[in-house]
Design a binder for these strands. Sequence first.
DNA 1: TAGTGGTCTAGACCACTTA
DNA 2: AAGTGGTCTAGACCACTAG
Lengths: 260, 260
Amino acid sequence: MQGLNERIDRNSFEPAYAQLANLLRARIAQGEFVGDKPLPSEAQLIQQYQVSSMTVRRAIKTLLDQGVVSTTRGRGTFVKPMQMQTITFSLEEFTRLFEAEQDTSVKILQARVVRAQGELCARLALQPGQRAIHIASLIRHHETPVVYHWEYLVYDPRKPIVEAEIEVTSLRGLFMGGQGALLKMGEMTLEATIVDEAKARLLQIEAGSAALHLTHTFYDYQDHPVSWGGFICRGDKLRLSTRLGATPEPGPTGVLRTAE
Amino acid sequence: MQGLNERIDRNSFEPAYAQLANLLRARIAQGEFVGDKPLPSEAQLIQQYQVSSMTVRRAIKTLLDQGVVSTTRGRGTFVKPMQMQTITFSLEEFTRLFEAEQDTSVKILQARVVRAQGELCARLALQPGQRAIHIASLIRHHETPVVYHWEYLVYDPRKPIVEAEIEVTSLRGLFMGGQGALLKMGEMTLEATIVDEAKARLLQIEAGSAALHLTHTFYDYQDHPVSWGGFICRGDKLRLSTRLGATPEPGPTGVLRTAE
DNA sequence: TAGTGGTCTAGACCACTTA
DNA sequence: AAGTGGTCTAGACCACTAG
């Protein structure tokens, strides 16, 4: 097989390193470098495409990050056998739910002060009896309820985040960067769950249906937990998807689709 | 606040760009660049740490990839407010299930030739009545059933992958790179599901329990679908987790934990 | 020993933002 | 106009792999 003989267009809007990366990607997708056959070496690519070493390196680095190739010093660059190790799912689409203002509505179901007890004490590092704020809300997309959100926040009047949180825009504030400057770090987990009767009614599905539960804990710059909560997403409406291997175009791997 | 005055250790095993990235990361985690305050400019970093521009750029690029900072041409580099947009979950731990040979056992429950019909025709681009191979297996971890795997493969004797697939090592072959060279591309989706009675018995859980369903479709270098299947993972045993924001150490974001 | 990728230099020019 | 990050050059030296 003879590899594409395209050249790098120096007048393109696309930088040279990206052009080279896509070019190599296309050659890979055509099966040009299967098995033990290595990609052209850096020196060869510099020659073939008339670019500098750093440009070649950056193109290769791009393919490395995309998980398409692997490199070994002293041996060469090889197409990576498609492996699950490299699979990642991202939540880009999920956040768009909150961005698309006209299509999405957030209804606060509850917002009140509670006394910490049990797991809540551990999660927010509170003593039993200390106050916390409990918020529950329902997110609708195109009039269809899609996500139920529950959250506990430390009750500390000195922290402006508390005031901001109670507002209708609490979710947006947390995730869209409004109050983000106050939050340093977060931990999230994603697991499968079944919805109980109360939430099923809210989400307009049958009790016992499958749902994705995305829980979160956020910390401030003093490493104190500030928020503990979770999103319960209708299993039939939300799904994560990703692509892997030598796809002809890079394409955003990992999207959360609002499926039919 | 006075920022760490550490220097770059040129004799370290850790390359200069990585040292600089971690150093900046630590300063960020201390809250040094909150709000509108930008990170030092490239020129300043070159001065302060006595490195070249490319080294500075690579350090910044690292933080960019980690989603910790964002850059704007003409303005500067800023700490990114923690946003969900950047959350990704990876499946590293999942593949380790198949790597750890002594802890994991795969039992083939079924492997037979079937006639394609319905959705299977669409998924594998087959005509109704054409033959496909159906495989079902149960993956145990420490004697506990954790994952049920189902899969359909195109039946084509010319393709060596078919032979390989029927073997006990089929899963390993697919994902661990054994036959990977034949597979060009894959699509995967992750969704919540509830397990039916038959699978519940196999997984030793109650029917109606929550589970994660990871489906996959793989294509060869001719862009023909080769395999369609899915992993049904006990919801109580497997969960995805990730960290985001300015964590002091990079840390592998996104792991699938075998809970408890 | 020859060839490979990994790191790094010391600049250059450009596009963009802000004042 | 000054400062910022984005791209790119044409090399250098090093660690590693293979024959």
